[in-house]
Design a binder for these strands. Structure first.
Lengths: 147, 147
DNA sequence: ATTGGTGCAAATCCTTTGCAATAGC
DNA sequence: GCTATTGCAAAGGATTTGCACCAAT
């Protein structure tokens, strides 16, 4: 089933692994790409429900798991309760405001060669790295210590 | 109240800020230091309860928040649901097995200068960085693709 | 026709909240 | 004595589970 041209990579990956191509899966990825970086499962659910009313939370979670497994989506936690999902492919990091919880992308070079090598030396394989910065965003800093 | 010599730094930090020195706070830090890296709030609770039966979960959580705020403890999330706490002071990273969830310390040099500078350029202050690696631990790799 | 995926409902787990009682200052 | 801190009970939110139905192959 063809939902949109730019999820054809997912359709191919699914066929290659003998997994089924469903509209839910295609729409989840499409909406994740449209929503941009660092969205919650609930936000994905709401966005997908516009195209597929009645889509269920367990399906959203299962699909997000699958997309992470396929390497099309990154998942990370920020200290807030909900996990965040990110379909952005370029290497980047995230910064979270410890007061308001807001999350932004950080685009910087980060060399994780040494930590990966150290983890590999402990027997770990197939490594990925997530850097999360915590700080006070400009708005909160201003609000908490006013002039 | 003196619980053990090596939490005197906490007692001093509390007095310096006009916060109260309580046995719960001292024991939480003592147990966290004894337990080592990456333990859950529930594990801390169980350990503290041996010295202070009846200590409550809200107290554990509030105290952990306080210790993080004081900079004596690091908090991080691994993709598992529960947050992890770590009283180890030396800079280090963590690696999580995506199959069994086990967490280990990684001791490597990591330069977060550039991401911190990029976040600061976006208005963020007072930054800390947490690197979490995800991979397959040796045991799980062996179990999943046996010889 | 098979069986992997999905939807529904409910359960579980982690964490926070409201409030009265307690203990540090 | 004053009030931050604690304990209790309960609520809240995110995610997972069990099971019956549906739809992709």
């Amino acid at each position: 089933m063809m939902i949109e041209a730019d999820t054809s990579d997912l359709a191919e990956a699914l066929r290659a692994r003998g997994r089924r191509v469903t509209s839910q899966r295609l729409v989840v990825l499409r909406e994740l790409r449209r929503l941009g970086s660092h969205v919650t499962a609930e936000e994905v659910h709401a966005a997908v429900a516009e195209s597929l009313p009645g889509v269920s939370a367990p399906t959203i979670y299962a699909t997000l798991d699958l997309l992470v497994e396929l390497g099309l989506v990154r998942r990370f936690a920020t200290g807030g309760t909900a996990q965040l999902y990110d379909a952005r492919q370029e290497p980047h990091q995230h910064v979270v405001c410890r007061s308001c919880g807001r999350v932004e992308d950080v685009d910087a070079d980060l060399d994780v060669t040494l930590p990966e090598a150290a983890a590999a030396a402990s027997g770990f394989q197939d490594l990925t790295a997530e850097l999360v910065l915590q700080g006070l965003c400009g708005d909160c800093a201003r609000r908490l210590s006013p002039v």
